[in-house]
Design a protein around this nucleic acid. Structure first.
Lengths: 241, 241
DNA sequence: AAGTGGTCTAGACCACACT
DNA sequence: GTGTGGTCTAGACCACTTA
């Protein structure tokens, strides 16, 4: 029934996830681990691994002695702040069909702050990319990215900056963006930003100030993003630790 | 070397975590799974379970073929928004020794919004608790909680509301708070809130608007919190999914 | 080539929840 | 008591990194 690659566990995870979203389980109760293991012809360990991954995602809850259940409220959330990656995808998940505007691309010497955050020397060249995400001519997100010019292999005029920044990084350097460490900051829109987002000056906006790291935990990217709270709201699950 | 309870896995997790925080690993490299299994006299599965939990916390990274490593940048973060639970603990982690003020406790009929969010009928009694968290007479957090009066077993005048709200819930009802579903909202401080947090009106504040759920995914608590961004900043890790 | 983490099996016993 | 998820074992093979 299942092939070798991707892993059995991953295939079974997808299989169960599909049944969940199709609402195929009575009362949100998922069959017992032993039952599924027999049914699908794999060991219970494999089933358990698949369920563990779904549990981490928040799709299910397990209750010792009682059973495993679909986690309905959490499945409803469209934009979990800890899970967003591409802004385009976030907007699509909200039901928008977004467009991306590249406002400006320039090469600048690194300020002391940016040099410090990216592990560069002050004055080293950095590439600064400004973008705007809109839906129906209404701006929703404003983003600014800084990355070391040393990682840019080709002339940047030739490049399509509409692709997500991490795709660009992977393509033009040998770097792979692994995770962001983000500060969550409430701000009052200053004139420049207010104009670009078409809100009145002083409007409360949500901002992310973040540094992106590669797989060796080296900083490779700084980003600053502003979100219109009236059009896009982020959510989060806070679990007991 | 290890006892039966808590589980072997949990003991080994703590054991490794302790070695990590004490910086006992050369170059942040953790011994191989096989090595630790032999060393500690348990099966490799048990070691792997312990490491998996540390990985979920973000304390380590595993690289197939290479090894397991301490995740230094993530260990540095003091206030991860997805991990906070008690505000008192958050402030302590920031190096403060906070005090808690109970501003007001009252019983009110539920508005339509609150009734809807808590699964009550409009007009049902709810208990409203307002608190303020300070450090050295400087207010840092403002919190308001709504909970169904029906779950309050005793007269609320007798109760010490300084304890975290989830402790109170567990004590006075049979409910256990399992997780919050939180909206992250940037706001401009209105006069009343600005006064209580001692900031000027219009200051950008971070707010959480959340609903707390019990283990059966039933809403049992509504909360609204305001944070002074200049004194307390939340962080988050955004991983690739 | 050697060593690492990733996957998978088959089986055992325990702790807890239902009824 | 019966069935559930939680823990744990011993062993096998695979995929990948490193030297």
């Amino acid at each position: 029934m299942f092939k070798r690659s991707p892993s059995l566990t991953e295939q079974i995870k997808s299989h169960i996830k599909e049944q969940i979203v199709n609402n195929e389980f009575e009362d949100g109760r998922i069959p017992s681990e032993t039952e599924m293991a027999n049914e699908l012809g794999v060991s219970r360990t494999t089933i358990r691994d698949a369920l563990s991954r779904l549990q981490i995602e928040g799709a299910i809850v397990r209750k010792q002695g009682a059973g495993t259940f679909v986690n309905e409220p959490i499945l409803q959330i469209q934009s979990r702040l800890d899970e967003i990656w591409s802004y385009t995808n976030v907007l699509e998940a909200h039901g928008y069909t977004p467009t991306v505007q590249v406002i400006d691309v320039s090469e600048e010497p690194a300020s002391a702050t940016i040099a410090d955050e990216l592990g560069l020397a002050e004055g080293d060249k950095v590439l600064v990319i400004k973008k705007r995400f809109l839906e129906d001519d209404t701006p929703v997100i404003l983003a600014r990215n800084w990355l070391p010019a040393s990682c840019v292999l080709e002339s940047y005029e030739d490049i399509d900056f509409q692709v997500p920044i991490y795709d660009y990084l992977e393509a033009c350097s040998q770097q792979r963006l692994n995770y962001y460490l983000s500060d969550i900051v409430p701000v009052s829109a200053k004139a420049e930003i207010a104009a670009l987002l078409q809100v009145s000056s002083g409007t409360a906006l949500l901002a992310l100030e973040e540094v992106g790291y590669n797989e060796n935990n080296e900083p490779i990217l700084k980003a600053q993003s502003y979100f219109r709270d009236d059009l896009l709201r982020f959510r989060l699950i806070r679990r007991r630790t």
